[in-house]
Each structure stands twice: as C-alpha cells, then as structure tokens.
C-alpha cells in the first residue's frame, strides 16, 4: 500500500531524514518508534506532502506521490491524523468530521445526507463525539480532540491512515481508550501507520515495526523479534 524508499527531507538547511525506507502492506498495522528527534513526525509529514523530499520516492497504492501538494495526496486515499491533533477549533465536532470527508462530498448541498452513514460509523466508534457534535471542537478535552482527529481521518474512507502520536499529552486512562480504538481499527482491517512515543504499547498492537534513529531506520522486524533485540529493549522498552 505504501512504499517509502530512500527518503531525504528536512527543514531549510538541516536534513532530518537521511535515507528512510519503509513499507506498509495492505491491511496491516505498522508502527514507527524511536527517540525524540529521530524524524518520525518528519517522515509522516513528508509522506502526506507537508514537506517536500529532496530525494527518494513515496509510492502510495502504486502511484508516486512525492512532491505533490497535501491536498492532492488526500484525494489519492491518504488520511493523516497529525501530531498535536490539529482539530479546527472554532468549528463544531460534526463540521470537523464532515470536512474529514471533504474529498468525497458535494461542495454545496446534500453533503450531510451523503455523509450520514459514515458519520454514524464514526459516532458508533466514538459515542462521546456524538454527544458533543454541536460543540466547538476547541472546547473539547485533549482526549476528545484526539478521538475527533482520528474520527476525522476515518471519515475520508482512506486506503491508508497515518496516526501521529495519538497518545501524546493524554492521561493514562485516556491513552488506554485511544489504544482500544487502535485495536478496533486494526480488527476492522484498516491499513495503519502509527508513530508512537510509548513503544511498548505500539509494539503490542503492531504487525511490523520500524525503529528510527537519527533520520534512518536502525532496526526493523516483527514485534516479537524486536522485543528480543537487546539494543531495542535497552533503549525503548526499558525496565
């Protein structure tokens, strides 16, 4: 579904990604872990088009997408729930979700009717969003905003979802809830690329994992193998 090959990208003169390569197969959950500053979020941003790679290729569902505008890549079936959630604060919860399906909806009238089945699906997954659907999303709690950011990504009916740091800044109880959702998504067969700080949680749910260090993939493998790798255990899984 997604092949990233020898990706180089950065901000201005400083190169953050120095030859990152990874593959996400259809219907699998792949996780990208590693220390702060390794380039995980930069990888995600480059895949979804927010950063232009200086070298390398990104193949989404057979089509090269490197260098395209993010809005074009979204039309090709990529949904990105960004780090820091980035909900549209002044807009209501429901409007946020509707905009998640922007690529598939009519622009002027009848978009509500057309989006209704997908809205119901998302609300079934996140009942609290239904309760708050008229509320301005900026007034939601951090956990609720995270649910909204995930729900908004799902509204696109995407081929691939990028989830960047869904547990960042959340209380432990809420992190549990977020991971319950990620398990649900995995069961439903959605293709996911997950970036996570809490490596342990991520490895539990993932089918395959990449460990990133200083802009490159340092180690990769199925989680069971990585958990045996002493270096990985020492660095990320600790105690």
């Amino acid at each position: 579904m997604l092949v990233v090959n020898n990706l180089h990208a950065g901000y201005g003169m400083s190169e953050v990604l120095m030859g990152t390569s990874l593959t996400v197969k259809k219907g699998t959950l792949v996780t990208l872990i590693g220390p702060n500053g390794a380039g995980k979020t930069t990888t995600m941003r480059t895949i979804s088009g927010g950063l232009k790679p200086s070298k390398g290729e990104i193949i989404l569902d057979g089509k090269p997408v490197q260098g395209l505008e993010p809005s074009k890549i979204a039309y090709l079936g990529l949904a990105h729930s960004p780090e820091g959630r980035k909900v549209f604060g002044p807009l209501s919860v429901e409007d946020n979700l509707l905009l998640g399906a922007y690529t598939r909806l009519p622009r002027f009238f009848g978009f509500r009717t057309k989006a209704a089945p997908d809205l119901d699906k998302v609300y079934a997954l996140f009942p609290r969003l239904r309760e708050r659907r008229k509320q301005a999303s900026g007034t939601l709690s951090g956990g609720e905003q995270q649910m909204l950011a995930i729900g908004r990504a799902l509204m696109a009916n995407p081929k691939l979802v990028l989830l960047d740091e869904p547990s960042m800044g959340l209380a432990p109880v809420i992190v549990d809830e977020v991971f319950d959702i990620i398990w649900e998504l995995k069961k439903s067969g959605i293709t996911l690329l997950l970036v996570e700080q809490s490596a342990k949680r991520a490895l539990e749910v993932a089918d395959y994992a990449y460990v990133m260090e200083r802009g490159r993939i340092a180690v990769e493998g199925v989680p069971a193998e990585l958990e045996k790798n002493e270096k990985v255990v020492a660095a990320y899984l600790g105690s």
Partner: peptide, 18 residues
C-alpha cells in the same frame, strides 16, 4: 466550512484535501 477550516488551521485543512 472549508473556508473556516483554512482559516483555523491551514496545514490541517490541506490534509483533508482542501
């Protein structure tokens, strides 16, 4: 609504295909 989304967060709006 896409107007308002761009005004609230341009980068996130781009990710929605706007």
């Amino acid at each position: 609504k896409a107007f308002e989304a761009v005004s609230a967060d341009r980068d996130a709006a781009e990710l929605m295909g706007i």
